[in-house]
Structure formats: C-alpha cells, structure tokens
Lab assay of single mutants.
Amino acid sequence: MQRVNMIMAESPGLITICLLGYLLSAECTVFLDHENANKILNRPKRYNSGKLEEFVQGNLERECMEEKCSFEEAREVFENTERTTEFWKQYVDGDQCESNPCLNGGSCKDDINSYECWCPFGFEGKNCELDVTCNIKNGRCEQFCKNSADNKVVCSCTEGYRLAENQKSCEPAVPFPCGRVSVSQTSKLTRAETVFPDVDYVNSTEAETILDNITQSTQSFNDFTRVVGGEDAKPGQFPWQVVLNGKVDAFCGGSIVNEKWIVTAAHCVETGVKITVVAGEHNIEETEHTEQKRNVIRIIPHHNYNAAINKYNHDIALLELDEPLVLNSYVTPICIADKEYTNIFLKFGSGYVSGWGRVFHKGRSALVLQYLRVPLVDRATCLRSTKFTIYNNMFCAGFHEGGRDSCQGDSGGPHVTEVEGTSFLTGIISWGEECAMKGKYGIYTKVSRYVNWIKEKTKLT
C-alpha cells in the first residue's frame, strides 16, 4: 500500500490518463441519441435557420407576430419608411378606419389613436360632414345658397324668414311668412316636400332668348283662358290664391305678392273693366268669414305684352289694390325667389296649380277651390304637342294621358313649387288646347323671366 501511494504521488498524470480511459469505455446513459432527441424537440425550422439574422431580410411573422416588435424591426421587413409607417399605425392600436367614419364618399386613412378623412370636392370637416359648395344638395341650405369668396357655403332665406341657429334652416321672422300653410287642420295635408338634388348652379339658368321682337298675326285659340281631375282644397291650404270678379264672377285667378299687390295673367284683364279681388276665398257660393274683398285701382301688364300681336306672350300683369290686405292664416303671400332659384325650383319637376275653373272641358265651374299636382314636361315634348308657338318664356306641365289639367277660369292662378315646406311661385296658368285632352298640356308663363320686374313694381313704400 505504501508503494502504491508513492507511485500516485510521483505520477499524477498517469492516474488522470487511467481515469479518462475508464470513462470513455463506459456506456453513456444520461444523453439520448440524435434521433430520439429530435422526437422530443420537434420544432419547425425557421426561415433563416442556421444563418445569422443580421444578414437576412426581415420576416413579418418572425419579427412582429411571434413577439412584439419595434418600429426598427418592422422597418427591416418593409425596407421602406412609408410602408412601415402605414403598417405601424394599425399594428400599434388597430384600424381606426374600420367603422368607416368618413361621410359623403370620403376616404379614410388610419393613424395612431386617430384617423384622417380625405374629402371629395365640396366637403370638409373631420368626417367630411361639412358642405362647402352650393353645387351639392344646395349646400344643405333649406332655401338659398351662395358661395363666399373663400368658396364656403353661405345660406340665406327669402323675405319674412331668418336663418336658424344651425345656419342652414329657415324659420319665420314674421307672423305670416310667405308660402307657408298655417291653418292647423290643413298642415297635415301639406304636399310632399321637395329635397334639393345635386345641381350645376353655374349652368342652372337656361341660355334662352326671349323672342321679344317676333311679330306674329293673332292666333285663334280655343278655350285658351284655361282644375280638371283635381281635388277639393281645404280652407287655408292655398292662402296665396285669390279669385278675380268682373263682368262675371271667378273669371280668373291670381296670387298675393304682398298686402297691396296681386300677380295674374295679362290676358285676364281689360282696361276700363272694374275688377274686384277676393282673398281668403274657399267656396265661392258661401260666406265663410275668411274672405277679404278689395278693388283694383291700377293694372300693370308687362311692358312687352301686346294682345294685338299675341294674347299669351309675356302673359303676366300686376294688380294694385285700393287697401292693403290683412295677412292671416287664410290670406298669405306666395314666396318669389330670384331668377336663378325660381328656375331651379321649376326644374324640380312638379308643381301645384289651383283655381275655381271648370271641372271638365266646357263644363261647370268649381264651387270649392280645386288643386292638382302636375309634372313638368320637357321642352321637346311640349313643342311636338301643339302647332302653336311655345315661346321661351312659357313652359308645359300636365299629363300625356289627359284627364287632369287646369281649365277655363283658372287662368292667372299660381303654379307653385314647394321647397322644404315653403311654396314659391314658378308659373302662372296661361293657356292650353281644350282641357285635359290626351297628348295636350297646360301652358304656363315662366315666372323666372319676370321676377325682377315683379319685385321692382310691387315694392311697398
């Protein structure tokens, strides 16, 4: 034993070699072989497995989906700052455009905790909710729209109204504003409101030439003092309507412009014939205590009207009353817009006519005020429907199939267009061939041609 100890002390290297040989010859039971080890760690190889990531292109799944990435790591994937920024906006807080917040056709661009709407022409605001041009839906104005110097929408209202708090709607500024039905039992019968379409306001006024200088022999019209197929109006439903009495009662109609003036057809009036105007009328054979009678003290036909040349060209006249009318729910003026808007309103496509005229061709006159909704007829169809001249200051309205029309005794009465609950004068009943005849239409004086003249002559002093 002493000898062994001496050998170990003198030859430590020998001992180490012996131990190493023993270990190498022993069977290893701690580690699995290569094949079995792979069965336990069965993990798919990654895209760049075996390579240094710093030297390969980034992978979106590896960089940002398996674990949260930084902007720089995302930049490695896209290799483009702009594309990385677009991805980053949604990656950080989701897609803010998912709810489609942009209105009126706006395009949404996502941002971090926010979004941006790219608005089409005519709109602005956070969600493109603000109209900035009158060309689109009248700028959301209830009545009139004008573009300011910086191309912003400025709404306005006709006389007797003021802008509401929203700067879009119009509200009454006087007790009985024009064009409004205020009798409670008839307010439910107000005709369907007309909503502004998209309009090209630059070209809204037709490029028409008034044929002022045409000389033409007097034409022989049949029954051209021209509501057939209409309905009984309720008291106060058309408070701007008046009836004219002269040699015979209810020979023509008219509309209240203001307390002192009536507008009617020029062919209705004769110099030297006494005319009485009755406002607030409903049943011409009954006294309903809503009527107001006034005498006409002055007749002003349009300066281009000449019955000797043509009885229905420039067929418009103004009547001055001896005493002002007292405005109330049964006696209310009709609204008159400017030339541009009167023309736009007419193009809405349908209007209402009213009167006490004959209820059928050569038949009896109506006792109760009649009204009828009539569609506008395109000019080409209008011209083809008659052998008589249709001037540019006239328009056609009615039904091709016949059966409904204005008729004798309705002449001078109103053709009105309702705009968001307020009625505007767009025409004056003038003439036609018979009444409600198939293929024939009622012919009306186009008020847009005469609004400046009306307003100039009827100013209240």
Rank of each mutant, 00 (worst) to 15 (best):
K68F: 08
R3Y: 09
F55P: 15
E434L: 12
T186G: 11
G94N: 10
R3I: 10
Y330H: 10
F87A: 15
L383G: 13
I428E: 00
Q219G: 14
G402Y: 12
F176C: 04
L244M: 07
N113E: 14
P44L: 10
I299C: 05
E456A: 10
C128A: 00
S217C: 06
K274S: 07
I429F: 12
Y115T: 02
K347Y: 07
P324F: 03
C28F: 02
Y352M: 04
C128Q: 01
F395A: 01
L60W: 07
E86R: 13
Y391W: 10
S329I: 04
V153S: 13
V263G: 00
K347R: 13
R75G: 15
E270A: 12
A173R: 09
F71D: 15
H400E: 13
S25A: 09
S329H: 08
T389C: 07
W431Q: 15
K146A: 11
K440L: 03
V377H: 02
N104P: 00
A307T: 07
P235N: 05
L369H: 15
N48L: 11
G230H: 11
T342Y: 02
E401G: 10
T264V: 05
E53T: 09
G409C: 12
N328P: 00
S182E: 06
Y22K: 02
R358Y: 06
T276F: 05
D223W: 08
Q237I: 08
P375L: 07
E420H: 07
A26M: 05
L60H: 09
R449D: 09
F123L: 04
P375G: 14
D150A: 11
I262V: 13
E86L: 10
A149G: 07
I262D: 00
I344K: 15
C268Y: 02
F78I: 15
T461V: 11
D198C: 06
R83C: 04
K362I: 03
V451Y: 05
G412N: 04
D33R: 09
E323S: 11
P414W: 03
F348P: 02
V359I: 15
E193T: 06
I390N: 14
C170F: 01
I443P: 02
V331E: 00
K68I: 10
G412I: 15
I309Y: 07
Q219S: 04
E288K: 07
P333R: 03
T218F: 10
L327R: 05
T458E: 01
N80I: 04
E66W: 04
E420G: 14
G160Q: 03
F221T: 09
K455D: 03
V92G: 15
K459A: 07
V447A: 08
N245H: 14
C252T: 01
R140K: 14
C155K: 01
C382D: 02
Y161V: 01
T16G: 11
G254L: 00
Q241M: 15
I17R: 02
N59R: 11
P197V: 13
Y312Q: 06
Y201R: 12
V416F: 12
L23W: 08
G409F: 10
K455E: 04
E259G: 03
L23F: 13
F348H: 08
P414N: 14
I214A: 14
S11Y: 07
I429Y: 13
N38C: 03
Q57W: 06
F221I: 14
A308G: 11
L244F: 06
A233H: 06
F121M: 06
E67Q: 04
T445F: 03
A26Y: 06
K274V: 07
